[in-house]
Design a protein around this nucleic acid. Structure first.
Lengths: 123, 123
DNA sequence: CTGAACCCTCACATGGATGTGAGGCCGAAG
DNA sequence: CTTCGGCCTCACATCCATGTGAGGGTTCAG
């Protein structure tokens, strides 16, 4: 598929699809005329990238963790240098912290909403 | 306490403590000499702010959700306009999405790490 | 009194994600 | 052949969180 379709299907501006490519997050093929050609599975990948960006991860880190999430995991053992592993452990832990922080605060918001709403309907 | 102590205790540059104040996230008192004076509980508040920022929330949103997390919840019922509630519901849902995204990806990283590490020690 | 270590405000700079638009090529449809 | 919509590259602009430093007060210890 071309960039327009991917853009629509992922709700992502074309500009950003090119940007993610520039940052090495995705690597579309090129048609004879120079147009980018995206594989079907890049739909999910782009959504994943957007989710991670929205959760505060920079492209530099996303680029490092993405290859670890592909199915044939064995292929990527070569990347497993000591520093790479340290980075992954570190990022995993930071993600856990984020999850905890978000969960705490979301639950507090929920509680507040419950209180306010039940109060409103009770009035 | 003054800004230097708060900075040390929260690991936050002074610059950012002033920035958070400018954005309306915290409201320190002022001593006679003009120095900022921070209440003890602002330590936790600052850590909370930093956590949320790190998790991708902008100061504008953080400013809106912070008041809902204080203990005497009843005090803030006045803030509960219809749009405010809509905002909170929306942000709560976005936080849930972030949590899911982070959890998915963190678990995948963990799996990958388990695979790589067990493979390494097995060799 | 002086110096060191705080604090203040103000302002300009940077980096990362994103917006916007100019100038131009390509291909289908009238 | 022209037109139009989609694609290309390039480049400058914007927003936000953060860095950095200048210029100047306060306090305290020596």
């Amino acid at each position: 598929m071309r960039i327009g379709e991917l853009s629509e299907r992922t709700g992502t501006p074309r500009r950003l699809l090119r940007y993610y490519e520039e940052q090495g997050l995705i690597l579309p093929d090129r048609c004879a005329n120079g147009y980018r050609s995206y594989d079907e599975r890049l739909v999910d990948r782009v959504l994943q990238i957007r989710g991670l960006l929205d959760a505060g991860l920079p492209t530099r880190i996303i680029k490092q963790i993405l290859p670890c999430l592909d199915k044939p995991r064995v292929i990527h053992f070569s990347d497993a240098t000591a520093e790479m592993i340290a980075t992954l452990v570190n990022e995993r832990d930071r993600m856990t912290q984020r999850i905890e922080c978000l969960t705490r605060n979301r639950d507090a918001i929920s509680e507040y909403l419950d209180a306010v709403l039940s109060n409103n309907t009770a009035r």
